[in-house]
Amino acid sequence: MLLGIAMGVLNDHRLKTLHAHVNLIGWVSLFLAGLYYRQIPAADGKLARWHFALATLGLAVLSIGLAGLAFGEMAFEPFAIVGSFLTIISMGLFSWIVMRTS
Rank of each mutant, 00 (worst) to 15 (best):
L54A: 14
L30H: 01
F52N: 12
L57D: 04
I40T: 12
Q39T: 05
G68M: 02
L66Y: 03
P78N: 03
S63E: 06
W50E: 04
L32N: 04
Y37C: 04
I25L: 15
A60S: 14
V82E: 03
I81W: 12
A60W: 09
L35S: 03
A75R: 11
A53Q: 10
M74Q: 13
L54Y: 04
L59E: 01
A75L: 10
L47S: 11
H21A: 10
L24F: 05
G58A: 04
Y37T: 01
I64G: 05
K46V: 12
A20T: 14
E73S: 06
F79C: 06
L62A: 10
Q39S: 08
L66K: 00
G65Q: 07
V61C: 07
V61T: 12
H51L: 06
L35W: 12
A60T: 13
L59G: 06
V28H: 09
G65F: 06
M74I: 13
M74S: 13
F79W: 14
H21C: 05
A42E: 14
T56K: 05
I64E: 01
G45R: 01
F71N: 12
F76Q: 02
A60H: 07
Y36I: 06
S63T: 03
I40P: 01
K46H: 13
N23K: 06
K46W: 12
T56L: 11
G68E: 03
G34V: 05
R49P: 00
A80R: 00
G26F: 07
V22E: 13
A53D: 06
